[in-house]
Amino acid sequence: MRDDPYIGLLVVLAPLSIASIGGATAIYAPLQYEAVDVRQWVTGAQFLDMFAMSRFIPGPSSILGALIGFKIAGILGALVAMIALYLPSSALCYAVGAVWDKHRGKPWHTALEQGLAPIAAGLIMAGVLSLYRITGGDVLTGAVILAAAAALTWKRKLHPFILLAGGAIAFELAWLLGR
């Protein structure tokens, strides 16, 4: 049973789905340990390659798990990995949301909602800061972040493509000039 790649993917990835608190970055260390050291699905170098590649793929960066699934068991392996990665956490989120809705309008519910608001605000700002740090925290990145935020303040319905493309063009120019 340990040799069946589909069961292996489910056994490794489904717990990581629930363990990925605060986003996909939480699962990198345990995923590397399982995929490289314990099960030897990929080598350490292949894992790093896939990690870099996952940054080029839209969506959650935990999709790295689906790349590994594809590597060991093709399209079906990738599909099984996707289910294992996203179904458990989504089911939990659904269950919490359902309970939440049922108690709408009760005083404790309103208090909880109002109490969560400043926590959400603090977490969003903390997320901006920690992602800024991951990018390397250079001046160009900071300038693009502020420019994009200012542009959105100026025009609230501005299309995200414009902001993403604007950032990409700015970086592309800087890269060409600095070459």
Partner: peptide, 23 residues
């Protein structure tokens, strides 16, 4: 690589703007 990093910075700007609304 450069284009991806720039797009990520643009996305961070959107997040900052949302943070301002949330604050």
């Amino acid at each position: 690589h450069a284009a991806m990093a720039g797009a990520a910075a643009g996305a961070l700007g959107m997040m900052l703007r949302m943070g301002v609304t949330a604050v």
